[in-house]
């Protein structure tokens, strides 16, 4: 089935504003692994029949990593540009698959004139399930293999915005055994990518943060690590690879697990 992914520019020509704008983010747009999450989420939106659009080439980095690194100038330039685009299209509601984009759009753009209803896709999926619009088939998200899932809280969805239950509720609808790690929810351990660490070498130390976290995840015995962030996805996948467990332990975003469970 080919996907329908409307562009905001086309909708604007017809004078339409979609129910929700899907903010794809840099990772979702360019990172090969994260692109799969983007596509999976679009599949769900298509299957459920959500009226959405993407900005396409009108979208630019929210400026999050620049701001966290300390470069407020670059952040403010991106923010001004994005707010102008979003306001120009009269966007009311945004869904983001990246917790960092989500946080900036939700908490930091309002002070810069960008006020929208912003929702992270883990909460959006939970709402679709709760309202009965998104039905989960009772099949294993790992195909013919039984799934046991451990959920990794991303810092910017968890501690940063206090969302701990929605992603877990989504996972609970899947035919899978859920295994929690020791450090979860407000006590969850970072994957190591935040604060623009993704874009630099580690400072001297005796271990990589993603190794520490992946080991904890793998110690649960789960064969699937569920994440809700493209950077956690990279970090946890790298950690699993470093332990040479990539054939036994899979790292997936929530959206991918739903698509797989529904055989879409």
């Amino acid at each position: 089935m080919s996907l329908t992914i409307p562009r905001m520019a086309d909708l604007a020509m017809e004078g339409r504003v979609p129910d929700v704008l899907f903010w794809v983010g840099c990772a979702g747009s360019y990172d090969a692994r994260a692109q799969k999450v983007t596509v999976a989420f679009c599949k769900i939106l298509n299957e459920v029949g959500v009226d959405f659009a993407i900005l396409g080439n009108d979208e630019a980095c929210t400026g999050d990593p620049a701001r966290r690194a300390g470069n407020e100038f670059v952040f403010q330039m991106m923010a001004a540009q994005n707010v102008e685009v979003l306001n120009g299209y009269q966007i009311k509601k945004i869904v983001a698959t990246c917790p960092h984009c989500f946080n900036v759009l939700k908490n930091e753009y309002p002070a810069l004139g960008g006020k929208y209803e912003v929702i992270h896709h883990s909460v959006f999926l939970q709402q679709l399930i709760d309202s009965g619009k998104l039905k989960i088939k009772g099949e294993s998200p790992l195909g013919d293999k039984a799934a046991s899932i451990t959920y990794h809280d991303s810092c910017y969805i968890g501690r940063g915005n206090g969302i701990y239950e929605a992603p877990r509720e989504v996972l609970n609808t899947l035919k899978a055994d859920i295994q929690e790690m020791n450090r979860i929810k407000s006590n969850g351990l970072c994957c190591g990518a935040g604060g623009a660490q993704m874009f630099k070498e580690d400072e001297p130390g005796d271990k990589r943060i993603n190794t520490e976290r992946s080991e904890e995840a793998m110690a649960t015995g789960a064969n699937t690590i569920a994440v809700n962030c493209p950077f956690c996805l990279t970090m946890m996948s790298d950690g699993v690879k470093a332990a040479e467990k990539q054939d036994e332990v899979m790292v997936y975003d929530l959206a991918e697990l739903i698509v797989q469970a529904n055989r879409w």
Binding site: I5, Y30, G56, A60, A69, V74, M77, M78, F199, K200
Partner: peptide
């Protein structure tokens, strides 16, 4: 290490310097 990221955002609007269109995945 952060300089390429700053430059990429400033010049190309993405955290990495990419030649593809932002919606090529679509």
């Amino acid at each position: 290490d952060w300089l390429p990221m700053f430059t990429a955002i400033e010049n190309g609007g993405a955290v990495w310097a990419m030649s593809d269109a932002r919606d090529k995945w679509a």
